[in-house]
Design a protein around this nucleic acid. Structure first.
Lengths: 332, 332
DNA sequence: GGGCGTTTTGCAACCGGTTGCAAAATTGCT
DNA sequence: AGCAATTTTGCAACCGGTTGCAAAACGCCC
């Protein structure tokens, strides 16, 4: 069926080793045999079987891309950038959709069966222990969009969520809001915990400002909308820092529905700056997370760890910045 | 490093074949050896190397998932459903991001190197020839969201875009619109061509209704917005059938910006019914494409074709229906 | 043309599994 | 217990490559 090394060798009149060598970088082949082999390969339409070679080289060039965020529009950008970035380095993404699963055992087993060279866990909601399970199994792994820890057991690339929380607080304070609130994602998500911590920590410096906190039951439009609707029935704050953009958009929808205007009646600041946030009919003021940089660094790091598996775990955090749009009143 | 068949065999005190057989469905092993092997495997933490076994069995359980739609929010749902659906059948998605590439040669080569069992091309914009290149290389392939042809060379699963165009036309006519228009995606996309055809075809039956056509330069928010802005500066139609939902949302944004209201001043009907269309602050009337059914059928079909490669190419089209929301005036 | 050092080449073993085949073990039956 | 039929087992070859090693070929110089 498929054309193999042997076929090419026979047609070119050389040994199988010769063929193998012309297709492996830096092997010793004379120009003459190389061209004979290349011609034969071209004639036969040969391309080497990456899986077979992985058996001896121990490298598959397969990277497990594990995520549980298949509902957040930001992650379409994330998948786009990851797949392109990996492809550009000759690596292939083997996608694992975690859905609501939270135990790494299954993914671990299947990624081991396919002997992936490395694993990227792309999730802001999974606990650090998830990625650590891969490392414990001896796989190079980086946790993208993961939680920062001072003594990481695993590479982490992402943002400083605590600093983001602080940044949101500062922004709201600078705008003169006196009654502010955090509307988080699910309380179990590590990103939400950290953002709340930073936000509240910063506001503790302003005892005159009233602060409250609530949690939506998911990082989703509906959850944001439901939560904001509930809040509006009590006495709402003047401005909200929402756990992420999609939550923010849900909140905006609830606000409009209630006949209130944003930013005149209530201010909203999101987090992520996903593509949709800039759409003119959404126009969300938000904190930009440098997704492309995070992904680039994640790939760099997993590649580097494949090369030197004993590499010390490292945390790379990228700075975020506020993107001014139309859902917060102007600074005084 | 990794624990192999041989290690398990030694520990269990049996031959390598015995171990192999306990892990292959329907092979002949006595209960006694099976339990010995299973214990040894458990102790050692063994899991069989899928790639090595693929060498002899000729099956990798890898499915190439090829797409160029990494910017349309609908495709996040698509990837979610595909990855889950494949995983549920013990198959693994190897993702290929085509970006703006339109030549199958590269993807073909790399999917062959990884000897995928089958290929799913998920795209509404690629021409039929793209998927055919895989079939010509002897790979089981299905084109999801692809173009319907009466004599397909390749399995196609999707919707009847011509019928959708007609359905949009009927809907607008039933609402009493007298000046209608089609605002397509890029003119080169097969889906746009067919939708235009159906739309215009149906309206040809209503000579009293004025029809016009224009094309946005991409299936994107910005392109839809730009195109609608341009249209509004001339004399706009009363209602538009937009090439897809994201284009529709761009158009809605332009309409709002111009100080016009939807549906009072201008009606919009989209196509896809992506999750966002139901968001209350978008509330887009649209034609629903049954994405989950399409994906389920695509997976069924690729699996069936792997089992019987000589299977005759088949087209499966799923019916669409109008989802009434708030961007079209009510039927008279 | 002979001798030496360097490249290139092929052989054969190996990577981690599977599988046809014949031998060994088990089972059922008289 | 003896025998035939059936099941289980291990051997060895194979899947499609890679690679250490020793032999062969080559290039260079005298």
């Amino acid at each position: 069926m498929a054309v193999t090394l042997k076929d090419v060798a026979e047609r070119a009149g050389v040994s199988r080793s010769a063929v193998s060598r012309t297709f492996t970088e830096g092997a010793s082949v004379s120009a003459k045999t190389r061209s004979k082999v290349e011609k034969a390969a071209r004639d036969l339409g040969y391309s080497p079987n990456a899986l077979a070679s992985s058996l001896t080289t121990g490298r598959t060039k397969l990277i497990g891309l594990v995520s549980n965020n298949f509902h957040n529009p930001l992650f379409l950008e994330v998948f786009d950038l990851f797949t392109r970035g990996l492809q550009d380095r000759g690596l292939r993404p083997l996608l694992v959709n975690l859905s609501q699963e939270t135990d790494p055992a299954n993914s671990l087993r299947m990624l081991r069966q396919y002997s992936v060279d490395g694993v990227i866990v792309a999730s802001s909601t999974l606990p650090p222990s998830f990625a650590e399970a891969f490392r414990d199994a001896g796989m190079p792994v980086v946790h993208s969009f993961g939680r920062y820890t001072t003594s990481p057991h695993v590479h982490v690339v992402g943002i400083d969520n605590i600093a983001c929380g602080r940044m949101a607080a500062e922004t709201l304070v600078a705008r003169g809001y006196r009654r502010v609130a955090f509307m988080g994602g699910p309380e179990t998500a590590t990103s939400t915990q950290d953002r709340a911590r930073g936000f509240l920590g910063k506001l503790a410096e302003h005892p005159d400002i009233e602060v409250s906190v609530s949690y939506a039951r998911a990082y989703s439009f509906d959850a944001g909308r439901v939560e904001m609707t509930k809040l509006l029935m009590q006495s709402p704050a003047e401005a909200y820092f929402c756990g992420d953009d999609v939550l923010s958009i849900g909140a905006l929808s609830a606000i409009a529905e209630a006949g209130l205007r944003c930013p005149e009646d209530i201010g909203i600041i999101g987090l992520n700056d996903m593509d949709m946030a800039r759409w003119q009919n959404i126009d969300l003021t938000t904190i930009r997370q440098p997704v492309a940089e995070i992904i680039g660094a994640s790939i760099d790091l997993v590649v580097a760890t494949i090369a030197r598996p004993d590499r010390h775990p490292e945390t790379r955090l990228f700075p975020c910045r506020v993107v001014e749009r139309g859902t917060l009143r102007p600074a005084r």
